[in-house]
């Protein structure tokens, strides 16, 4: 019978120690970061950085999240206004979002960009300022894809208008 307990633990502990040491170095200041993603719209991968430079609202949602559904018409109206680009990212598979009401399905049409997040969305959410994964979560990005403002929780049309206006103002200054 072999005895391997301590031997097997050592590599793990060594790896652990190394990662702890590197963590502080890897800590990012998200506020200065140009955000990007590469997500599927069901037909192709969409990379944010390859889209034309434009003020962009990014909204994370799920079909089983009532406030997510409630705010969707306001996002659709903003998209139709043409003032900014609106991207919704469902943290569910396409088939799962079909359980959303018909009015929401109607809202999820062009000019709204409708994308789906990865199966393991932790990294994507954290990158977009939502490490704990609460929904809905909305960001307004400037033309350089830097976040102007963000909100975890339900938004309103007024909040969207003000956030977009403030973002435009900040870019000019």
């Amino acid at each position: 019978m072999t005895h391997f307990g301590n031997k097997a633990l050592l590599p793990s502990l060594a790896l652990w120690a190394g990662l702890l040491a590197s963590a502080a170095v890897n800590a990012e200041n998200q506020a200065k970061t140009e955000l990007d993603f590469e997500l599927s719209d069901g037909r192709q991968f969409i990379q944010l950085s390859r889209l034309p430079a434009q003020t962009t609202v990014v909204n994370f949602w799920r079909a089983d999240c009532p406030p997510c559904l409630r705010e969707m018409p306001a996002l659709a109206a903003l998209a139709r206004s043409g003032k900014v680009r609106v991207i919704t990212i469902a943290l569910q598979k396409p088939a799962e979002t079909l359980s959303a009401p018909s009015a929401i399905q109607a809202a999820l049409t062009p000019p709204m960009h409708v994308l789906h997040g990865p199966s393991e969305p932790r990294g994507l959410l954290a990158r977009f300022g939502n490490r704990v994964g609460a929904l809905p979560h909305t960001l307004v990005l400037d033309k350089q894809r830097r976040p102007c403002t963000q909100r975890t929780g339900e938004i309103t049309a007024d909040w969207l208008d003000e956030a977009v206006a403030n973002c435009a103002k900040a870019e000019k200054t």
């Binding site: 799920r62 089983d64 932790r122 994964g133 609460a134 929904l135 809905p136 975890t152 929780g153």
Partner: peptide
């Protein structure tokens, strides 16, 4: 919970009893 998500809890609203993608 899904139902309580109808209410604002301070500044936070959540989609379900467990946050997504945060494991």
């Amino acid at each position: 919970g899904a139902a309580i998500a109808d209410k604002q809890l301070g500044e936070v609203t959540v989609s379900s009893g467990r946050a997504v993608g945060s494991k």
